[in-house]
Design a binder for these strands. Structure first.
Length: 573
RNA sequence: CGGGGUGUAGCGCAGUUUGGUAGCGCGCUUGGUUCGGGACCAAGAGGCCGUGGGUUCGAAUCCCGCCACUCCGACCA
């Protein structure tokens, strides 16, 4: 490819809105161009990279006996009503009417389509296990896109769906996919990634893992143990905390005036926050009359994901109180209106003397004791883990890091096969609903993740396996007849040898060419110049290490192929 | 969905307070001199100042509406 013709505009300055490295570099290198919020065009280098990632994914999926299919982007309402997701999914799903006034939608995931297809084809247990996958555009109307390609509305995703006769078979297959995911991420050049147990959320099913790239700019919080290999998404992470040892005391009503926050009340009463109980008020989504109060120790925060799971309902923060008389700041568990849904965090269970709201303006109680004063209270874990809490497995210290979700795998169970009426004949002559797994990887997000990780202050430094071109030739002084002849000849020879080459045919200054090469990040740079040709050599520089060697012109192809091979071997190891 | 911010040339920005002929840097075109880490000289092209309305002799600038983009938060199968 000749750089002068390449559809890809580099800029010196980053777009003002780009905040994170991958977004800045992909924009500056001209790999992506925003069209609307969360919607991007990809230029040639980016598309080539996407194709190479897809090729690796296909190889690994095919090795699992996956069969590539293509589901539609636009689907009718009907199949989504069978799983009830037409109604349960909110406005992230784009719905519209076709010319005949039929309800249609844009696919944001394809469990329904997968079951619809499999249901028509699979009728016997002998056809199982079976996995189908696709690589296709999805549209999710995210409330807020950000971070360049990290969180977008339209994106290319590989999604796979497997069908099994038994839970055991699913589990066996699930862990094969798990291993394949490790290979995929390693092969595309990601380094600092881990898998974590995750909340299967609204997908249904039980066991699920997320693959996370650990990076400061990640939007997810991950809890990791410094001592053992416990790790979990913040949504499901558990931590152990110390219980303060306080003497049991009689319950006593105390005046606290205008002090409402935990800090104010504890300061006035000279108590530590660990001996207080705070109330966090939520409303059930779609019904602001239905109030839920979560009680938790004053120094902790409520983990809304855990709370939702316990309630089985969507909730939203609510800033009102339990009544006009008792606003936030004086709510307590003692003698509270019984019609209100309450949830108690386990952090409160063994504190023998608590400061609580009195459900009465300007008053709190001290000396509250759950086992004495509210013996029927049930305790759940609804606390957000903090860095420094202790590991639930080994007791070691927990830390919290940020990550980007680069893939996920779910054991779905029979949620979709049951609701959509997919049955298969078993060996015993009976019928059963196949057990499903599903497995996703976002291709664009993988590109952003690589850009985030594989880069330095000069620009991208792309892995050999997915770089759009493996070699970037920078001829200096193309007006020099010898340089011109030898540089173009080298370009031809490398191309013939099966190497992907980008050739900078512009008559620009050396600095311009070098800076563009550094920014675009091809793994090997070759300089052909009057200086190098004086000794009949070219200069080969490895982008990653910066290591540079002069190689005899006639050995250049051999030398390049050796570097390519060693870098690919390292990624495939 | 809540709270801030910004829309002026392909990109990055100044000009808006105090209304008076549309500016700068980069990039682009042409010619010349340069040539191993973002060269120099000269000459050019390129803008309905987001959009609709209002005020005014006159609006990028003042007023009102709308749209888009963006940051923080909520949300995120």
């Amino acid at each position: 490819m000749l750089l002068s013709k390449l559809v890809c505009e580099r800029t010196k300055e980053a777009p003002q809105d780009a905040k994170i490295k991958s977004h800045i570099l992909l924009s500056r290198a001209g790999f992506i161009k925003q069209v609307a919020v969360g919607i991007y065009s990809m230029t040639t280098p980016c598309q080539k990279m996407s194709c190479k990632i897809q090729k690796i994914i296909r190889e690994e999926m095919d090795a699992l006996d996956g069969q590539e299919v293509l589901f539609p982007v636009v689907m009718p309402r009907e199949i989504w009503e069978l799983s009830d997701r037409y109604n349960t999914i909110g406005s992230e799903m784009v719905r519209f009417k076709d010319r005949n006034n039929r309800d249609m939608l844009l696919g944001m995931t394809h469990e329904e389509a997968a079951v619809h297809l499999a249901n028509h084809i699979v009728s016997s247990y002998a056809q199982l296990p079976m996995m189908i996958y696709q690589i296709q555009t999805k549209f999710r109307d995210e409330a807020r896109s950000r971070g360049g390609l990290i969180r977008v509305r339209e994106f290319t995703m590989k999604d796979a769906y497997s069908f099994h006769e038994s839970k055991e078979d699913l589990e066996k297959y699930y862990y094969r996919v798990y291993d394949a995911y490790y290979r995929i991420f390693k092969r595309i050049g990601l380094k600092n990634f881990i898998d974590i147990k995750s909340d299967s959320g609204m997908m249904g099913g039980s066991i699920a893992h997320e693959f996370m790239l650990l990076t400061e700019v990640g939007e997810d919080s991950i809890v990791l143990c410094n001592n053992c290999d416990y790790r979990a998404n913040m949504e499901v992470a558990e931590g152990k905390i110390n219980t303060p040892s306080v003497q049991e005391q009689p319950l006593e009503l105390v005046f606290t005036g205008e002090d409402k926050t935990i800090d104010e009340v504890c300061a006035r009463l000279k108590k530590s926050k660990e001996e207080s109980c705070k109330a966090v008020v939520f409303a059930v989504k779609g019904n602001s009359e239905e109030v839920v109060i979560a009680f938790i120790r004053g120094d902790l925060e409520v983990n809304e994901a855990k709370l939702k799971k316990i309630l089985g309902k969507e909730i939203v923060p609510y800033d009102g109180g339990v009544s006009e008389a008792v606003a936030c700041g004086n709510i307590g568990p003692y003698e509270l209106d019984k019609s209100i849904i309450t949830v108690y965090d386990k952090s409160l269970e063994r504190v023998d003397s608590l400061v609580i709201g009195a459900n009465k303006a300007e008053y709190h109680y001290v000396g509250f004791n759950f086992s004495r004063d509210l013996p029927n209270a049930k305790f759940n874990d609804i606390a957000k883990v903090r860095g420094g809490d202790r590991c639930p497995v080994c007791g070691g210290k927990l830390r919290v890091e940020n990550g980007i979700e680069i893939g996920n795998i779910f054991q779905l169970g029979t949620k979709y096969t049951k609701s959509m009426g997919m049955t298969v004949h078993g060996a015993d002559g009976g019928e059963f609903n196949p057990i499903m797994g599903c497995y996703g990887i976002g291709v664009g997000r993988a590109i952003a993740s690589v850009a985030q990780e594989a880069s330095d202050d000069k620009g991208l430094s792309l892995p050999m396996s997915i770089a759009p071109w493996q070699v970037h030739i920078c001829p200096l002084r193309l007006d020099d007849r010898n340089v011109n002849k030898k540089a173009y000849a080298l370009y031809q020879k490398l191309t013939k040898a099966g190497v992907d080459v980008l050739f900078d045919d512009r008559s620009a200054a050396a600095g311009v060419k070098f800076n563009d090469a550094d920014l675009m990040g091809m793994p090997i740079r070759i300089v052909v110049s009057p200086k190098s040709l004086a000794t009949d050599e070219v200069e080969i520089t490895v982008r990653k290490s910066g290591e540079s060697n002069k190689v005899a012109y006639k050995d250049a192809v051999k030398s390049v192929k050796a570097i390519i091979k060693s870098q690919l071997d390292e990624l495939n190891a």
